[in-house]
């Protein structure tokens, strides 16, 4: 089983990965064999079963609404690739 080139390209767009033509073929083969593996799921009888999102049957703990995060901009921006004027910079955003 292999996946169509177009599908790989769509997935790569959604996942924002540059996948050039030389890699598409290999990706398609490998993803195809993984999908063959996961297709075994289809045979399982799961009628009436709810999905298990979390291994333990716990519920969300809630936090009190109290500020306790100091300003650490300097430390955070020291490891950022491109900042200026206290902002993170990216190529022009076009809506």
């Amino acid at each position: 089983m292999s996946i169509e080139k177009q599908t790989i390209e769509n997935l790569a767009t959604l996942a924002r990965l540059a996948i050039d033509d030389t890699r598409v073929e290999e990706m398609s083969q490998r993803l195809g064999s993984v999908l063959e593996l996961v297709d075994q799921l289809k045979a399982a009888d799961t009628s009436g079963l709810s999905g298990l999102d979390h291994p333990l049957n716990e519920t969300q703990r809630l936090r009190e609404d109290t500020v306790n995060k100091p300003n650490m901009r300097e430390a955070f921006q020291a490891i950022a690739p491109d900042t200026e004027g206290d902002l993170y910079l990216v190529p022009k955003v076009i809506d």
Binding site: E84, G85, D86, L87, Y88, L89, V90, P91, K92, V93
Partner: peptide
């Protein structure tokens, strides 16, 4: 996303 401000032109600045 800020399109102008205290930074070089041609890019956008992000305030989170």
């Amino acid at each position: 996303s800020l399109h102008e401000g205290n930074f070089r032109s041609g890019v956008s600045g992000i305030d989170l």
